[in-house]
Structures are given as C-alpha cells and as structure tokens.
C-alpha cells in the first residue's frame, strides 16, 4: 500500500550507491543493510513478496535507520529515502509486526496528555519556560511525531488531535516549539496558528551580544535536512556572541545521534551509543569544547554515554549568555 506509492524512490535507491557515505548508522556499523541502497532493496523485496514483510531481519534493519535525511539532502534529485522507510514502517506496524520494543514505546507514547498554564498570546512548547516571559506554557510529551516515526499512524493521529485541541483551547495564534522533531511535525498541521521554531522567535525578540565564546553547533537533522535549513539558530548564537567553529570531517554528515528517528536511544541504545562515540571521537576535547544542539533529545543522548561531554541545548546556551 504505502510502499507502492514510493515506487519512484525504490527504483532510484535500490541500485544506487551515491549517498552511502553519509548514512550515520552505516558509518558506524559498516553494514550494507544500513545504507539507503540496502534498505531500498529490502523494501523492494517486501513489495514483490509480501511474506517478506514478516522477516524479522528485514524489520530490524528498517527500525535501525536513524532517518537523518542527510542522504536525501545530498541526493541530486532529493529522492525521499527516509519517506520510503517511514512508509515501510507504517505497513509493518499496521500489520502488527513492529519490533516488541517499538510496540512498548508506542504504548507509552499513546498516553501523552497536554496542559496549558500562564497568560499571554504566544504559546511556548518546550523545556525552558524561563526564556519566554509573557507566554503561555504548553506542557506534555511528544505531540505524535515519535509515534508517526515508529509507524503507528492511527495512534499518532489520536495524540496529535489531543495536542491540537489543547492549542485551540489556549486561543493563542502563535506557537513556539523548541524540539526540532516536534517543530517539523507541527509546522504545517495547525491551520490559523503560526508555528515558529524557538530560535526564530528568540531572534525576533532581539538578542544582545554578552561576551565572546567559541562553540560547535551540531546541526539538527530536522532543521537542516527536513525543514530547509533555517538560519535562525546560527544567527541567534552569533548575535549572542558565539563564534561557531566547524566540526567533523565535512558539513554533510549528520552528527545528530539519531535525532531523525526521534526516540532512537530508547529503541536502539547500542546503536545510539555508537553514534555518540563517533561524535566523541571527532571532538578535539570533549570537556573543553562547548557543543550546542537544538534538540534536548540529542543533548540527553550525548550526555548519557559520556557525562563529561560538554553539550547544552540552544536554549541553555542562550540562557548561559544572558545570565
């Protein structure tokens, strides 16, 4: 069903080797099944022989993807490789064949509820309300993106309906979202509500240079590869006095340790640890260099496997400069 709709992507990727150098998981496991070509071959087999949909090794490979979209971004014709994997996950989960761990996660995520507190015309959804005086604060877990990425479409829709109602009930016409995956999920889904990423909003509010400091900005999979690479996060950091220094071997590879797969660490902790180790390995000095990420999830993963790793979120970095 869903995968047939992506036949053009299957045809393009199944025999193509041109972006494999950018697959974050392939770059740490070295497995052919962790490349866009490998995954497209698997999905093509599933398309040709529906029985293959039940093959646990195939399912496992598709749930190992970090969905970084660095490959799609690199691709000359931007074939939607991650969209293809998501389509396959939708079919797998729809048939009740998702890995047990994914099912358990989905159960947890389905429970998400949302509340609004405070006063104001702007609604803020994130972990750092102190930066948003005069805004209403929306609290709650993932708005449906994680479920969508795991393939649980109906459950994702249900959670999102709850989220949408909460936003509507708040009567705010502007929603500021901090977590990039949620921003990507929500930005086209709330008619009549202007959805901003927190960096855009804070930049609009005006940022004053406090002092000079060097930092590495770890690009976000969602902001860079899914949302057209807005300049706001970098502009904001620069305006505050951060000098952003380049990191890694190139500017195309994703160092976002599974951000694209939203709940990657919960689903594939060993792989997430490997992705983190690659980042630690590329860092000149894990303790001295300051790393800034737009995603609290990325910060948590990088801290989990090396508590000494000096990483903060964008909002924490702003707060550090302003206080």
């Amino acid at each position: 069903m869903y995968i047939e709709d992506r036949q053009d992507v299957i045809n393009a990727c199944r025999f193509c080797f041109m972006c494999r150098h950018l697959d974050p998981v392939g770059n740490v496991t070295f497995r052919e099944s962790d490349t866009p070509r490998g995954r497209a071959l698997i999905i093509d087999r599933m398309r040709m022989d529906r029985e293959c949909m039940k093959e646990p090794d195939f399912i496992d490979a598709l749930y190992r993807s970090a969905l970084s979209a660095a490959n799609r971004f690199h691709c000359v014709s931007h074939y939607d490789e991650t969209g293809l994997v998501l389509a396959a996950r939708r079919e797998i989960a729809g048939a009740g064949l998702a890995p047990e761990k994914a099912k358990a996660l989905a159960k947890e995520l389905e429970e998400a509820g949302f509340t609004v507190k405070g006063k104001g015309n702007v609604l803020y959804y994130g972990e750092f309300p102190a930066l948003y005086p005069g805004c209403k604060i929306l609290s709650g877990k993932d708005p449906g993106k994680a479920l969508e990425v795991l393939g649980f479409e109906a459950a994702s829709k249900k959670v999102f309906a709850r989220f949408k109602k909460t936003v509507a009930d708040s009567a705010c016409k502007t929603l500021v979202v901090a977590e990039p995956s949620s921003y990507d999920f929500l930005r086209d889904k709330l008619p009549g509500v202007k959805v901003l990423h927190s960096a855009e909003y804070l930049l609009e509010q005006g940022a004053k240079k406090a002092r000079a400091r060097k930092a590495v900005y770890l690009e976000s999979d969602f902001l860079k590869n899914y949302c057209g690479n807005p300049s706001a996060p970098r502009e904001l950091l620069k305006a505050l006095g951060y000098t952003l220094v380049p990191f890694g071997t190139n500017c195309e590879e994703s160092y976002a340790v599974g951000e694209g797969a939203v709940v990657y660490d919960a689903l594939n902790p060993e792989l997430c640890q490997k992705l983190c180790s690659r980042v630690y390995g590329l860092a000149v000095d894990c303790k001295k260099t300051l790393f800034i990420t737009a995603s609290p999830r990325v910060r948590d993963a990088l801290k989990k496997y090396n508590p000494a790793f000096n990483v903060v979120t964008l909002e924490e970095a702003i707060d550090a400069m302003q206080s």
């Binding site: 025999f15 497995r31 099944s33 490998g38 698997i42 093959e55 090794d57 195939f58």
Partner: peptide
C-alpha cells in the same frame, strides 16, 4: 542475517540487479 545477505548478493553489476528486478 537475511538483510545483510541480501545487501551483499547484489553489487553494481547489471545481472544481479536484473535478477532482483525480476524477482
């Protein structure tokens, strides 16, 4: 495992690609 076996059964030679394409 089946996933890696599949990935390693096809390189950039046209014949295995054709075989895969034809099931």
């Amino acid at each position: 495992n089946k996933a890696d076996q599949l990935g390693h059964s096809i390189d950039y030679y046209w014949v295995p690609e054709l075989w895969h394409d034809r099931g």
